[in-house]
Amino acid sequence: MDSDVSTDDLRHLARCIALAAEALADGDEPFGSVLVGVEGTELFADRNRVKGGDATQHPELAIARWSAAHLTPEERATATVYTSGEHCPMCAAAHGWVGLGRIVYAASSAQLAGWLADWGVPPAPVAALPITDVAPGVRVTGPVPELAAQVRALHAARFGKA
């Protein structure tokens, strides 16, 4: 895992956290993600949309689908996915299958699993595996300690633990 986080990385992660807050305000799970091209331009952004009953409506999966439809393999390989929370195995697999580049996340799956356990919330139905256990060739940066507390606060609010 890479630990280099730039000012640009922090700016894009702040956008992800804002999208996660938007999701929470809409009654959804607080996750947000953005896809950024090699030149630093935001290409696509989304937030969790699972409240309707389709638990696969994760923003990271939407990014993978969008990039497969709109970017060349070279553009995908040089793009960066920023996300408030580490990809679940489904999203990590999609990322690997479409050939996206680097992933930068604010809080890890292990952190989220720990918070849920501390709050007495049942674990997710899918194992909290590190991205590189699912997509070993992906360059990963995270968690980002200075932002993880913000992500924790969003999840705490979701479960009334704030």
Rank of each mutant, 00 (worst) to 15 (best):
T83G: 12
G101C: 02
V138N: 00
Q150P: 11
A124M: 10
W115E: 13
V140K: 04
D133Y: 11
W115G: 12
L24F: 05
T83L: 06
P122R: 05
R139I: 02
T41M: 03
A149R: 12
P125N: 02
D28P: 12
L112P: 10
V5N: 05
A93D: 03
L116F: 12
G120W: 06
V81S: 00
C88N: 08
A18C: 07
H12R: 08
R15C: 04
H87S: 12
A20C: 11
R65S: 11
I103F: 10
A127W: 08
V5D: 02
D54T: 04
V50K: 12
T141H: 02
I131G: 00
G160S: 10
V138F: 02
P145D: 13
H12V: 04
L154S: 01
T56E: 13
Q150K: 14
E86K: 09
A64F: 04
E29M: 14
D133T: 15
H12F: 15
R65F: 08
P130I: 05
L100N: 03
R15V: 09
V126Q: 08
A55R: 13
H12E: 09
A14R: 14
L10E: 08
A20N: 05
T56P: 01
P125T: 03
A55G: 07
K51T: 11
L10Q: 07
F44Q: 03
I17W: 06
F31E: 15
M90L: 15
P59E: 02
A77D: 01
H95W: 05
V38Y: 09
G40P: 02
A135W: 01
T80S: 04
L10D: 07
G99H: 00
E42H: 01
H87Y: 10
R15Y: 08
I17T: 03
Q150Y: 05
C16M: 04
A77G: 07
S33K: 04
P143L: 12
A110Y: 14
R15M: 14
A128I: 03
A127D: 11
D9T: 02
P143H: 11
S6I: 02
H155V: 14
G40W: 02
P145Q: 10
S3G: 07
L19H: 10
C91S: 15
A62D: 12
A110L: 12
S67V: 01
S84M: 04
L61P: 00
P59F: 03
S6Q: 04
A77E: 00
P136Y: 10
A117K: 14
E42P: 01
G137R: 01
L24Q: 14
A55D: 14
D118A: 15
D2P: 00
L43W: 08
R139W: 00
A127N: 07
E42Q: 13
H87A: 15
Q57V: 09
S108A: 10
A162E: 13
G160N: 06
M1K: 13
V38W: 05
G37I: 01
L112E: 02
S3P: 01
G101N: 03
W119Y: 14
V140F: 07
D4A: 11
L116W: 03
R152M: 13
H12L: 13
G53V: 13
W66A: 01
V134D: 00
G160F: 09
A62I: 09
D4N: 15
G52Y: 01
P73K: 00
D2S: 15
C16P: 02
W66S: 00
A55L: 10
A77L: 04
A149F: 09
L129H: 07
Q111V: 08
G96W: 04
Q111G: 06
G40M: 09
A113M: 06
G101F: 03
A77K: 01
